[in-house]
Design a protein around this nucleic acid. Structure first.
Lengths: 204, 204
DNA sequence: CGAGTAGTTGACTGTTTAGTCTAATATGAT
DNA sequence: ATCATATTAGACTAAACAGTCAACTACTCG
């Protein structure tokens, strides 16, 4: 029924790119429309505000990301391997983004979350929700690793928090310094925190 | 000679507060003027732009902070104590800010740096400069601690990077979640990374 | 005290931005 | 084919915003 269109998807793609390469503040509805090749009238047909399109885009994007994470953190994969793959995949993504945009972009959720959490309640809440989901992958991997004797992490939840703080912090540093190199220390840093048995064997 | 005024200082104080509680994007020159009780004409008498006042304010603020850091990280203080004090002081500051503004604000440099680094070259560069200074305090403390046998950190510079990524990451998480509690794990996390001898003895 | 200087004021311009509305257009279902 | 409806176009308003300017004020030093 009625006319069909992929304008909604294009708008969500556009806002994600603008948020990631720039910031929430530097992303205007006009820019989003321009990037998506959509007129403002259409924008307001699909969304109510910048916050609205941001939340929708973050949600949709994470649903897709989830499939990858489920594969990467599958219980069928050894815990050490899960985390190694995550670091490697993340690194390659940053390399790709730097090649594409000229900047190391870091974690969009973290950067954006820090920017808007005191101002845009809805966006902040969505980001918190997604970050919590992500944390669970780590918690499970760490718990499994501890059980298997690969890590020393009696309190898996606490260790997961430490590891995530480190990873997000490092990604953000990489963004601020626009430097890919510091990301190469990530696996080493993470496995040291986890008291991994053979750190050398897993260095990228 | 001529008329005297503290308007410049008031403008710098105002911009810092707005940047910290909100974001670069949400901070407008009109808001800065309003908060400082200064008219726009005066703003442009002292500064050329938002980026200009931000850089000046960050610089001035760090010069003051430096005195505190010099005391805290004095070579006369045992390395473990330097870091413990840093964590404690930082925590109390966050408590104060949460009481004052209703939000955990995290590290203004880090949040701001991540927001603007791809857009405002001058601000990004100033933030990088200050963060580098801060990193040196840690590096020295860690090197001293290793020499004294309190830490295991043969590569002090690398350890300092790990520790700072963790600290900044944790502070930013606290901001995103508006949660003071997770900050209480900081000393424990840091000293674990440093392979400190007596973790319990230094927990806050 | 008066002259030069540092700082202030507020009204002004032009631009960017969010958000609205109406008429037009394309498409699927019948 | 045509009808209901999903989508689009683009011009419009109002507000927020950055930045300018010339006249005014208060201070200090000689």
């Amino acid at each position: 029924m009625g006319r069909v269109s992929d304008a909604k998807v294009r708008l969500m793609d556009a806002v994600l790119e603008l948020l990631w390469t720039g910031s929430y503040g530097s992303t205007t509805i006009d820019h989003i429309c321009e990037r998506a090749g959509v007129k403002k009238g259409s924008f307001y047909y699909f969304f109510n505000s910048k916050a609205d399109v941001a939340v929708a885009a973050l949600d949709t994007s994470f649903q897709a990301r989830r499939v990858e994470l489920d594969a990467m953190f599958s219980p069928s994969v050894p815990p050490t391997e899960r985390i190694r793959k995550y670091c490697e995949f993340g690194y390659l993504l940053q390399v790709e983004m730097k090649a594409k945009f000229g900047y190391v972009l870091g974690c969009p959720l973290f950067t954006l979350g820090a920017e808007v959490c005191t101002q845009e309640q809805a966006v902040g809440a969505k980001i918190q929700e997604i970050l919590e989901y992500k944390a669970r992958y780590f918690e499970t991997a760490i718990r499994d690793g501890h059980a298997a004797g690969a890590f020393h992490a009696p309190d898996a939840a606490a260790k997961a928090r430490v590891v995530r703080a480190y990873i997000e912090g490092l990604l953000t540093q990489a963004r601020i310094q626009n430097d890919l190199e510091i990301l190469r220390e990530m696996p080493e840093g993470v496995f040291a925190m986890l008291g991994a048995r053979s750190v050398n064997a897993v260095t990228v």
